[in-house]
Amino acid sequence: MPLESVPCQPGSATRCARCTLHARCLPLGLALDALSSFDAIIQHPRPLKRGAALVRQGDAFTSLYVVRSGSLKQTVALEGQRDQVTHFYLPGELVGLDAIGEAHCYGSVVALESAFVCELPFTRLEDLAERVPELRGQLYRCMSRELRNDQRMMCLLSGRTADQRLASFLLGLSERFRTRGYSPYCFHLSMSRSDIGSYLGLALETVSRVLARFQEQGMLTVTGRELTVHDFEALVALAEDGVGRQAYV
């Protein structure tokens, strides 16, 4: 199913305590007064149509963003090469952590479907984090997860077959959907086969061929962009040679 479970309309309440993503978002565990202060720095949720850019590569870094609904992808333009997909963002995830150090956006971030994002001006977030240790700790944990994801991708792309790469990718999506309250066995692939191939270092034809093979083997079915996993254990067994399911938690 599309990731539209958090209805957001212009003028709707942006209070974090009322958001269904509160348990997966940056203010997790904040006391009521700190949560109120965090609410105060959030810009009004911004709507994005499919294909609209949230930020562009090289833009000055001013804010972090939390995906409130929908999904986005990050692409990096490389000289003399095709754009490389480097990240997919789901609800509750932070966009822009990789821009903090250099103060400019590492890649362009584009909506894969209709989406809403909450903007967090970084200077105001920094000031608040200095006064609220719990928020500072949660921000560090988000950064740590980002580093771990980068390490996981290095392992995923190193010496692994196309089947193993795609199985690991699907398991990673499954786990991310599960932690957000969605089914880990039936979910919507908002990204295209081409995007998946770019992310995994595979050709579009290879992604399509491997998905067809997985279906023939009875591990899953794909109807359009709706994917249903039938044999989760077989998918795990295929992927666990090097990078196990726990790498995605």
Rank of each mutant, 00 (worst) to 15 (best):
R15I: 01
F187M: 08
L156P: 01
T86D: 01
L238Q: 11
R245V: 10
P133V: 09
E216W: 06
S5G: 11
S69F: 00
R209I: 00
L211T: 03
Y106M: 10
S192Y: 05
S192G: 08
R136D: 09
F122R: 07
A40M: 06
R56Q: 15
S71G: 15
T179L: 13
A34G: 11
T20C: 09
F116N: 13
G244F: 00
G11A: 07
T221W: 06
L112I: 00
V85F: 09
A77N: 08
V229Q: 05
G201N: 08
Y89N: 01
M143K: 02
Q57F: 04
L97F: 07
L220V: 12
E216V: 13
T223Q: 15
C25S: 15
F169C: 07
Q74V: 01
C155H: 13
E79A: 15
C118H: 07
L173S: 07
Q151G: 08
T14G: 15
G101K: 06
G58C: 11
M153I: 09
R145T: 00
V66W: 02
V67N: 09
G70R: 03
Q215P: 03
V236P: 00
K73F: 09
S144L: 13
G107I: 01
L78C: 10
V85G: 08
R145C: 02
V95S: 07
S37F: 00
E175R: 10
R82L: 04
Q43G: 15
S158Q: 12
F61Q: 10
C25E: 01
L173H: 04
Y199C: 10
R56T: 12
Q43E: 14
R160I: 02
R82D: 07
G58R: 11
L64Q: 06
V229C: 12
F187C: 05
R176Y: 04
D150A: 14
F214P: 07
S168I: 02
P47K: 05
E93T: 02
L78T: 09
V109D: 01
A234F: 03
Q74K: 12
L200N: 05
G242I: 02
L28D: 04
D83P: 11
P47T: 09
R180F: 06
R209S: 12
V66A: 14
F187I: 06
T86V: 07
F38H: 06
H44P: 13
A203S: 11
C16E: 03
F122P: 04
P47V: 03
E130T: 09
C8A: 09
Q217E: 15
M1Y: 08
P45D: 11
D241Q: 14
S190W: 01
Y89V: 00
L204Y: 12
R213G: 08
L139N: 03
A162R: 13
Q74W: 00
C16I: 04
V243E: 10
S108Y: 02
K49Y: 02
L21Y: 05
T20F: 01
S71E: 07
G172A: 13
D83Y: 01
V132P: 05
G242S: 05
G137F: 10
A247P: 01
S208V: 06
R56W: 02
S192C: 07
R225L: 03
R82H: 06
T228G: 05
G96P: 04
G242C: 03
E175N: 06
C105T: 00
E102A: 13
L90E: 02
E226D: 13
